[in-house]
C-alpha cells in the first residue's frame, strides 16, 4: 500500500459497466513511495513505449476508487493491484487502486529510516514530503 494525498475527483459517465457507481479520486502519492509508483510505470514499457528520454513517470498521480468518503486534501492509504479489487467490490471490478484508509495521523522518523538502509534519494524525497 502507498501513502498519498487526495488532490481531486473525476467524473465519468461512460465507464466500464463493472465499475458501477464507484467514486473516483485523484491521489498524488507521497514522495517516499515513488519507487513503488515505478511499478506502474513498468506497465507502459510492456505496452509499447514510443517517447523516450524521460526518466520520471509522466503521471505522478493515481486514480483510485473510494468507499470511505475521503475528501480533497485528506491523506489516504491506497492499495494497488488485486487486493484493491477486493476492496472495491470484488474480483470482477476492473480497477487497480483503491482507498483503504483515511489517515488521521502519520509519523515517520527520518533518522530511523536512514539507519535502516534507505538510499539517499529516498531520504531526500522524504524530507521534501514531510519537511
Amino acid at each position: 500500500m502507498i501513502l498519498g494525498r487526495v488532490v481531486g475527483q473525476v467524473w465519468a459517465t461512460r465507464r466500464d459497466a463493472r465499475l458501477g457507481r464507484a467514486k473516483l479520486l485523484v491521489v498524488r502519492p507521497t514522495g517516499i513511495y515513488e519507487p513503488a509508483f515505478d511499478e506502474i510505470a513498468s506497465g507502459e514499457i510492456a505496452s509499447g513505449e514510443i517517447a523516450s528520454g524521460e526518466t520520471a513517470f509522466g503521471a505522478r498521480h493515481l486514480v483510485a476508487t473510494d468507499d470511505l468518503d475521503a475528501g480533497i486534501g485528506d491523506q489516504v492509504v491506497v492499495c494497488l493491484g488485486a487486493p484493491a479489487r477486493a476492496s472495491a467490490g470484488g474480483n470482477d471490478v476492473p480497477v487497480d487502486a483503491a482507498v483503504m484508509a483515511v489517515v488521521d495521523r502519520a509519523e515517520i522518523d527520518l533518522h530511523a529510516l536512514g539507519a535502516a538502509g534507505a538510499g539517499p534519494g529516498i531520504r531526500r524525497k522524504l524530507t521534501e514530503a514531510f519537511g
Binding site: 481531486g8 465519468a12 465507464r15 463493472r18 465499475l19 470482477d92 476492473p94
Partner: peptide
C-alpha cells in the same frame, strides 16, 4: 474483465472523463 483474456495488452481504457477537479 474488460476486453477479454486473449488480448495482448494490459492497459485498458475503463472510463471517459466528463469532468474532473484538481486542487
Amino acid at each position: 474483465l474488460t476486453v477479454g483474456a486473449e488480448v495482448a495488452d494490459q492497459d485498458v481504457v475503463i472510463g471517459i472523463v466528463d469532468g474532473h477537479e484538481l486542487y
